[in-house]
Computed example of a mutant assay.
Amino acid sequence: MSTPTRATRSTNAGTSDSRAPQAPNGIWLVAEREIGSKLRSKTFLISTGILLLLALAGIIIGGFASKNAASETMPVAVTSETAAAVSALPNMKVTEVSSADEAEDLVRSEKVDAAVLPGDGPTGVTVVALKDAPGSLVTALSQAPEVQILEPATTNPLLRYFIAIAFGIVFMGAAATFGGTIAQSVVEEKQTRVVEVLLSAIPARTLLAGKVIGNTVLAMAQIVALAAIATVGLIVTGQREVLSTLGAPILWFAVFFLFGFILLAALFAAAASMVSRQEDIGSTTTPITMLIMAPYVLVILFNDNPLVLTIMSYVPFSAPVGMPMRLFVGEAQWWEPLLSLVILLASCVAAIAIGAKIYENSLLRMGSRVKLGEALRA
């Protein structure tokens, strides 16, 4: 049998290319394949359902708990001399009695938590309790010095902390889950030699683009579902004020997450293409995973530190968490999200270009791990 000539091979290659799908069609076919494989996975559907239920339950439980805490009152016995001082305090159920002995009897019978009686101390009152004095009552009746706050907090510190956790967990969870999916898919196709069949029909960059777009669609769908669940939960629990404050930050979070995930997805695919076994994925994707975990840790530890949040809001890997947090607490000017988004877009383009080069040069190299320098060389 004769060996095909160069002209024959060129003709065959030309025929193959002419039959190959156009780039947009090829990208959509790969993206559709990625989306379909995930939606057919029971594990993915069940885990997503559990995530949404946990998010809804957390918001509802937190809302009702805050309502109950706000509406909880303390029964207190008073006399005519102390009634005015205690009645002015919030969350106090006042029972006025005629004498100190009657007030003490109510305390001993545990019908009230404490009694406030006339006293000789600086405050002019004495708190009588059965075993332990209620801290909130003692604090409310204590004489405190005048306090002047130079930079008052714009949000409730506890709410700020939980919002920081929410943004951090959602970003880290979605990015790690779908980034890991891309990495596993790339290595699985290399390990089973399926990638050779795919590359005979479509270019490597088309394959990469389809994978990134498919998983981005799934990740954004999960983000939108979580946002809808959060909205429903806040409305059900009557936290419309919190919802109005969170509206713009959530929208910006979705925008920043979209481009931030595309950046990370391209890097995950490139890193995974450098190895040929599932066991070796961690050796190349661990640095990217650390980049995902860093914003989660930083936003929780430094959610009340304006300097750290400002730096985070301009670093591409942490901007999807840092900038929405600054918008939520009112520390960002109107132009800052736009500038941060421009920086993120530029970083995204650079990451896609570098990732595509590594992916294209490493995809058909089997065996030992491809070194980064070799992958970057044409």
Rank of each mutant, 00 (worst) to 15 (best):
A65R: 10
K42G: 01
Q143H: 11
V76W: 00
V86I: 10
G36I: 12
T73L: 02
N91Y: 02
D132T: 06
A83P: 07
I27Y: 05
A115G: 02
I35G: 09
T11Q: 14
S87H: 06
E146Y: 07
A69T: 12
L89A: 08
K38C: 11
G121K: 07
R33C: 08
A103H: 04
T139Y: 05
L141M: 05
A13Y: 05
L141H: 09
S109P: 03
G58F: 13
R19Q: 13
V107D: 04
A31C: 10
E72K: 10
W28R: 14
S109I: 01
S71R: 10
T139G: 15
L39G: 06
R33V: 01
V116C: 00
A55R: 04
V138L: 11
G49V: 06
A65C: 04
I46H: 02
S10F: 09
I46L: 14
S109M: 01
G62H: 08
M74P: 01
R33Y: 12
D101S: 09
A140D: 10
Q143P: 01
S87K: 14
I59V: 15
T126R: 14
A88E: 14
T79H: 03
P152S: 13
S10L: 15
K93Y: 03
E72D: 15
S80W: 07
R33K: 13
V116T: 03
M92E: 01
E81R: 04
L54T: 14
G58H: 10
A31S: 15
V127S: 04
K42A: 05
L130E: 02
I46G: 11
K38G: 09
L117K: 07
N12Y: 13
S87E: 15
I149Q: 13
L117A: 03
D17K: 11
A55F: 09
A20E: 10
P118N: 12
A88H: 03
D105W: 01
L89K: 01
G62V: 07
A23R: 14
T48P: 00
L117G: 03
I35D: 06
G124F: 02
P134A: 04
L137M: 09
A88N: 11
S109G: 00
L53N: 09
A84H: 08
T79C: 07
E72Y: 03
I60L: 15
L106W: 00
K111A: 02
D113P: 00
P145R: 15
T79N: 06
R108G: 00
A57I: 15
V30Y: 13
K93C: 03
E104Y: 04
I27M: 11
E104R: 14
E104V: 10
S80A: 15
S142W: 05
S98T: 10
V116D: 02
T8A: 12
A20R: 07
A55K: 03
V30G: 08
G36R: 13
L52A: 06
S41F: 00
V97G: 01
L29Y: 06
E96R: 12
S37L: 15
D120I: 03
G36A: 13
S37D: 11
V107M: 06
G62M: 09
S37A: 12
V86M: 03
D17N: 13
K38E: 08
L51S: 15
T43N: 03
Q143A: 11
T95I: 06
A133F: 01
N12S: 11
